[in-house]
Design a protein around this nucleic acid. Structure first.
Length: 575
RNA sequence: GCCGACGUAGCUCAAUGGUAGAGCAGCUGAUUCGUAAUCAGCAGGUUGUAGGUUCGAAUCCUAUCGUCGGCUCCA
């Protein structure tokens, strides 16, 4: 039922994209048509025309679309020979359509016409343009023809369409609401972090409130890793280029690396932590009895990402991974991956985050033997199955050095970002000759797993901000309690209460400004502080407190110790 | 990196070739007040940066840095 509903909504949107294309062709006959499919929340159509022209005329295009809708032109399907279709698109000078046509294997192709407009299209469509009533053009973007970087850049118009006006309105509304949860906006208003052009693009400054949030996450990470048999290691931020030559990064990844010369020597700012961890492993001979070895580091790395892909905290140039490398025997692979998966699930549950998992398999270009790939892929699959985790398979999407499991998390607008990832690596063990002495006394090749369980501190904090809309659970809140005085006369008592809470490890502040209570409540509310402790003459006299939660609930007449216990329990429970 | 849009006070925004302005925040003073904004005054800007056009530029042009939406990339 639901599938059918989606299907017909896709049809509606696909039809809307044809109407848009018709409108563009009417206004700008020189525009060449690309493709125009429905997508998750709407549709788009690509045109080969100066994007500036379109961007200045989105309103006119939408107006023309409404006209086409009023004309109520029927969508007419027509089966024609490829030969005839070719003639039609040659006449209309549509090179991209001709290119698509050549790739269709059937002798007959379907065309859809509405009025003077004709498109090569599989369909289906709604009956007539009059059925497409509620739509909106949303944005304009460049997009490479067929998604290939070397191809010409076309101009893509995004839009959306719904059967009902209410649905369109609520969709537009939802986008507006989601924008309020944008971590870049909240990061500013909650004073968590900033990015500064003086520093450089993609480099994050954590302000005190963002830094304490990160500090809490890092402490938590360290504890949890120690509980699971990881050994902390620490490796430098820069190293001789030689190391990266051996790892292969200088050959494959150089354009993303910060490389600098010092006298005769070339140095590299690390873009990854693996070579450092490998040096730890290779610092002595390893026995099978030592394995698995799990080295953990909150490793800060720098990568020169393309300027166009930077995005707040979610895509940056300097970031800290909760990185670990597991060195194990092939026979230990499944168990190790299972443990990591459990770790990831534990994290997702602790932070109440939704996610989806993808298993990426062998790409066309790869290193290592097909048998090893098969075995590793099988190990990952087995681990996923044994943990009962639903996952999708991305055929051929693995790294060239091994298969991987990626975990994606959603931002406020539903865009997916990779967080945790578990990658098997056949490459580095070869390049660095990573071995252990087997029971037989012979050297064997070690298996290496790269894994992060949150991903990076930056991205994870970004996702957390959007997930909670800035209203973090108590244990993560930069300020857990703010004490508000009703008049300045309660100041002394307020600071006494502050001392008690502070000494219990609660992050607490006092607002004893000479301002009205309503004003202070509003400030605390805007800062999304979980608890406001209100102290007026009544409380001062009886040495009790009144607590207002950020949800607006009031708890009156609490003993101070009672409240402290309550907050500590919340922190303990991570709720 | 590519396409398009954008960049004005700490923040949110106004000023379409003719003297840069408002609200909030900040500071000073008054007010001592009970759950989302008390009142008044003051201060705050080489309009991202660098060039250019013009009698005159926030406004037009060029370059550059950065931001936003996509595309591509994501060892």
């Amino acid at each position: 039922m639901e599938e059918k509903e989606n299907y017909s909504q896709d049809v509606l949107r696909h039809s809307a994209s044809h109407i848009m294309a018709q409108a563009v062709k009417r206004l700008f006959p020189q525009a060449k048509l690309g493709i125009g499919p429905p997508i998750r929340d709407g549709f788009y159509y690509d045109f080969d025309i100066d994007g500036e022209v379109l961007s200045h005329n989105l309103d006119r295009i939408e107006e023309e679309m409404r006209k086409i809708v009023r004309e109520d032109l029927p969508f007419e399907k027509e089966m024609v020979s490829k030969e005839k279709a070719r003639k039609i698109f040659e006449e209309r000078e549509e090179p991209y359509k001709l290119e698509l046509l050549e790739e269709i294997e059937d002798d007959e192709v379907s065309l859809y016409r509405q009025g003077e407009f004709v498109d090569l299209c599989r369909g289906p469509h709604v009956r007539s343009t009059g059925e497409v009533k509620f739509f909106r053009l949303l944005s304009l973007a460049g997009a490479y023809w067929r998604g290939k970087e070397g191809n010409p850049m076309l101009s893509r118009i995004y839009g959306t369409a719904f059967f009902k006006k209410e649905d369109l309105d609520s969709y537009l509304n939802r986008i507006e609401e989601a924008k309020k949860r944008d971590h870049r906006k909240l990061g500013k208003s909650l004073d968590l972090f900033s990015l500064s052009s003086e520093l450089g693009a993609g480099l994050v400054i954590y302000h005190p409130k963002g830094a304490i949030l990160r500090e809490i996450l890092e402490r938590f990470e360290k504890e949890e890793h120690l509980k699971r048999g990881y050994q902390p290691v620490i490796t430098p931020h820069i190293s001789r280029a030689h190391l990266w030559k051996q790892s292969g990064h200088l050959d494959y990844y150089r354009e993303n690396m910060y490389v600098f010369s010092l006298g005769k020597e070339e140095y590299v700012v690390k873009p990854m932590n693996c070579p450092g961890h490998i040096l730890v492993y290779n610092s002595k001979i390893r026995s099978y009895r030592d394995l698995p070895l799990r080295y953990f580091e909150l490793g800060t790395v720098y990568r020169r990402e393309d300027s166009g892909v930077l995005h707040g905290l979610l895509r940056v140039r300097g970031f800290t991974q909760d990185d670990a490398h597991i060195f194990c025997m092939p026979s230990q692979l499944v168990d190790e991956v299972r443990e990591v998966l459990r770790f990831v699930l534990f994290m997702m549950k602790t932070f109440r985050l939704g996610y989806q998992m993808t298993l990426s398999t062998r790409p066309r270009k790869y290193i290592g033997s097909p048998e090893n790939w098969e075995r590793a892929t099988q190990a990952l699959t087995t681990a996923l199955e044994k943990e009962n985790i639903p996952f999708e398979v991305a055929q051929g999407e693995g790294a060239f050095y091994g298969p991987k499991i990626d975990v994606q998390m959603e931002d406020a607008l539903g865009r997916l970002w990779q967080g945790p990832t578990i990658q098997v690596d056949f490459n580095l063990p070869e390049r660095f000759d990573l071995t252990y002495i087997a029971p037989s006394g012979k050297k064997e090749r070690v298996v290496m797993i790269h894994r992060v369980v949150l991903g990076t501190m930056e991205r994870f904090i970004g996702i957390l901000i959007e997930h909670w809309g800035g209203a973090f659970p108590v244990w993560l809140s930069p300020v857990q309690v703010r004490i508000l005085t009703v008049t300045t006369k309660e100041s002394l008592f307020a600071w006494q209460v502050y001392q008690k809470m502070m000494s219990e490890g609660i992050r607490v502040e006092v607002d004893d400004d000479n301002a009205m209570l309503g004003y202070k409540v509003r400030q605390a509310q805007l800062e999304k502080i979980p608890y406001m402790v209100i102290i007026g003459p009544r409380e001062k006299e009886k040495e009790i407190i009144t607590v207002r939660t950020r949800d607006g609930e009031n708890l009156r007449g609490l003993e101070i110790s009672e409240f402290i216990e309550m907050v500590k329990t919340k922190i303990e429970d991570k709720s």
